[in-house]
């Protein structure tokens, strides 16, 4: 049941070298640099997004994800959802407006898998980059690299998937679009959506808490995924696997790493989900095909290279 969470709003990623990261996310992925702040953080957006930014880079000596934020319908939703999260026994911290540049107050909490999430409702809207909202052209000229359309989702690894399912489905109003279930009927992967997209956030079972698997960006077509693969080779960027197709969500995909070892995905296509759709189930015995539909086997790196 929808509870007022609209979409992934932003992700803050820790990088070892800000200049190398800026080059990767701007020149290769094609994000647009929008701003920076007095903490040295850099704010980026993908061109179809209406909000001012969706990716925040912060230099650190430990790569990974600081937090992922979801945008909600309005400020009242923040208060009601914060109350419901607290009723689960999870503490919620309200961060003041302006703590992130041009963003309203944020309700921040740690999920049972150890990942930090936040809800916000207000952020400066600069509109789609390079095109007007009246009689808009098809796309803006001057985009770089892969020309990523939008920040789409994150996949995170952690231990307490059932705790996260309760939080995201029952409290935050996400639907469980797809799952991976082992022979003892334990869920080992969750693909959750607050929209019609196949996933807005996904989790895979892992012994350690709070591990970051990837941040994913949407491209329009399979041809764009192939061109992304060409660009990865041209720039000698660290590749993980692809181009290929996922069984889960059926998206067409390629995985690669930023210069600090954080994994990125660009993908096209994929399934959609309405609230009356049955949860799609993949069997853990067929995890290879579920993750990589063509090879039908996992590379070890997919399960172990995390930040």
């Amino acid at each position: 049941m929808k509870k007022g969470v609209m979409r992934p709003g932003h992700v803050q990623i820790r990088v070892l070298d800000l200049e190398e990261a800026r080059k990767h996310y701007v020149d290769l992925l094609g994000l647009i640099e929008m701003d920076s702040d007095d903490q040295g953080r850099v704010y980026l957006k993908a061109w179809t997004e209406v909000d001012k930014y969706s990716v925040i880079l912060r230099e650190s000596d430990e790569p990974g994800m600081d937090f992922m934020g979801f945008k909600c319908l309005n400020e009242a939703v923040l208060d009601s959802l914060a109350e419901e999260i607290r009723a689960l026994g999870i503490s919620v911290t309200e961060l003041p407006s302006g703590d992130l540049k041009d963003c309203g107050r944020r309700m921040q909490f740690v999920a049972p898998t150890g990942h930090t999430f936040e809800l916000f409702a207000t952020k400066e809207q600069t509109g789609k980059w390079g095109i007007s909202s009246v009689n808009p052209e098809a796309w803006p000229r001057g985009l770089k690299g892969m020309q990523a359309n939008r920040f789409d989702h994150c996949l995170l690894y952690g231990d307490d998937l059932e705790g996260n399912l309760t939080l995201f489905r029952d409290v935050l109003g996400f639907d469980l679009a797809e799952q991976v279930v082992d022979p003892e009927q334990n869920r080992v992967a969750l693909f959750l959506t607050a929209s019609m997209k196949a996933h807005d956030i996904a989790f895979i079972k892992h012994a350690e808490k709070n591990k970051f698997h990837h941040a994913s960006f949407y491209l329009e077509t399979w041809q764009d995924v192939l061109k992304a693969a060409d660009l990865i080779s041209m720039t000698d960027t660290s590749i993980d696997i692809g181009p290929t197709r996922h069984g889960l969500t059926h998206g067409q995909t390629i995985y690669f790493f930023d210069p600090s070892g954080n994994r990125n995905e660009v993908f096209a296509g994929g399934d959609y989900h309405y609230p009356d759709h049955e949860t799609v189930t993949w069997k853990a015995e067929d995890l290879g095909k579920a993750i990589f539909y063509h090879d039908r086997q996992l590379n070890e790196r997919f399960l172990t290279a995390l930040t």
Binding site: L16, P63, G64, S238, D240, F257, D258, P259, S260, G261, N262, R263, E300, R301, T304, A305, L306, T307
Partner: peptide, 12 residues
């Protein structure tokens, strides 16, 4: 040597 992220992040 095991190959992971190649960026100093994953430890493999």
């Amino acid at each position: 040597i095991q190959v992971g992220c190649r960026g100093g992040g994953c430890g493999m």
